[in-house]
Design a protein around this nucleic acid. Sequence first.
RNA 1: CGGGGUGUAGCUUAGCCUGGUAGAGCGCCUGCUUUGGGAGCAGGAGGUCGCGAGUUCGAAUCUCGCCGCCCCGACCA
Length: 592
Amino acid sequence: MKLWSQYFIPTLKESPADAEIASHKLLIRAGLVRKLGGGLYTYLPLGLRVMQKLTQVCREEMERAGAIEVWMPHVHPAEFWMQGPRWTAAREIMFRADSAGDGKRGPKEPEFVLGPTHEEIITPLVRAEITSYRDLPKNFFQIATKFRNEIRPRFGLMRAKEFVMMDAYSFDVSDEASIKSYLAMKAAYEAFFRRIGAQAIAVEADTGVMGGSYSHEFMVPAEVGDDDVIYNEASGYAANREKATSALVPKELADAAPAGTLEEFATPGVVTIAALEAAPYSVPADKQFKTLVYIGDGKPFLVVLRGCDELEEAKLGTLGFGVFRPATAEEIEPVMGAKPGSLGAVRGTIKNPGALAGVFADHAIRLIGNGTTGANKDGFHLRNVNVTRDLAVTKFGDFRRVRAGEPDVKSGQPLQVRRGIEVGHIFKLGTKYSEKFGAAYMDDQKQNHLMEMGCYGIGISRTLQAIIEQSHDADGIVWPWNSAPFQVLICVLDPQMAEAMDLAKKLAAAAERAGAEVLIDDRAERPGVKFKDADLVGIPLRLTIGGKGLKEGVIELKWRSAKDVAKVPVAEAEARVAAAVAEAQARAHANG
RNA sequence: CGGGGUGUAGCUUAGCCUGGUAGAGCGCCUGCUUUGGGAGCAGGAGGUCGCGAGUUCGAAUCUCGCCGCCCCGACCA
């Protein structure tokens, strides 16, 4: 039991100017956190209590799923990362942790980095400690601070430079066993989000810089989310924007027979899809080929899409390049023979085809049949371009961005799009890291094999804010029972009345015996202030003890999530409070 | 890193265009009154106007540079 007057809950009437979204404003106004700098926050007592709640539920669910808790350093010798498979890609987001001196001691390359995640640390550990199939499977997790030098921290805790994450790493003897671990974690995640009262859904996701074979993201639907979820409610299909695909191109699509002769025509000044759509050319965007030049690991490659489609850059990750980026105009001309706007992938028109690492075409261009593309000659295009006959395609793939309304691959019904906050992510990694670090085990036939890995993350601090985003009203936060910093708030309107305070303490004890945590508002404030703060802070169950009520022999019982107020006779109050707590716990247990 | 915005008391801000005493509300302190949905009156403390140059007799205000913060884009839990 805590007394508000002795505790520290600095609430604010007005929102700070730098908060835009509801959950960010409420985090500050309800006194949960304070900002130190961009993406850096101090957790005040109330914020810390919520964090501890989430952490504990997370720990319980991980352990229930068979994972084992460890604690790894946050300062990593950089050589672990240099030995790993993603140093080039990951180093930009890592803080370096050299001496804070004036640079005389500081080497050019970092000696230490702050850990953004821990694959590079856990894999060498397991390599050294586990060598027999008898010791597998193993799944290690920790709940700790992560450091990422985010280019743009956002929305309070939503994307911070320093944040709390649960990260877990599974090691298995085989692909099948690894899938089992993966599914166990997926179930544990679902249990975790259910218990803390967050509505999170699992969606198929891209593996990104993590590498590996497949993954799911856990998304909390919210308008302010950073990610688009593409889904169809009926079929159950759900994927994030980077991964989403559709049945736009039928599987059995027969390529049209070549039609017409390849023909060059002058298009002076035309360098955009839109300009070619306009008169006098009038070529619809879905009959144009869009040719993009990228640089992958230093070598240029082409991506061909329909003129009406957008490239989903993340999908280029499937091509196997370590890093890739759009080519500059200066890089393009020597390879292609023309400036951007007149490019094409027609055989024989590319100036220096030998320089290319490949020509990758989106499946959807097969829908074009007879189309138009750049001639690799400034001011000229080619018409009657046929995919199979004319284009120098190395490989077809899915590179386009899916749009709402396209047919779902599962049901053929239209796909929908909504925004979401990514609160968790699970990856089946395969042997990407175990191979790099030599994490192998010996089987019962004395054969050595690489371990099959998985890695799993939950953004605990981000989840905290996502809950607020999902559960608030005009007056403040509405905490789910299991996430609340306290479950019961006792508002004593006349704290100078000994009778009122005595009753408050008795009720607090009853609520505590029933398993709740109690905060008593004993401040010498007017009732209006206390009620406003109570709504703002959002503790699920509020008991009000006032001089007026006591004269009538009643106290009030009110749920934060409901409007109605129940008057309870003082004589029955202890029993009623205990029953209310028990009921809330049962409800929280049943549906989160 | 590119684009846009912004910086005045602990918080929210006015003043800046058109240079001349830095103002309000909330919060805080003292007193009196009030006491069931962010009270009233009276008194008070609190400011290098983000930092640095420049223009000027004089700069919160005009000019230049830097920095912080916020929003949009790429990345992520």
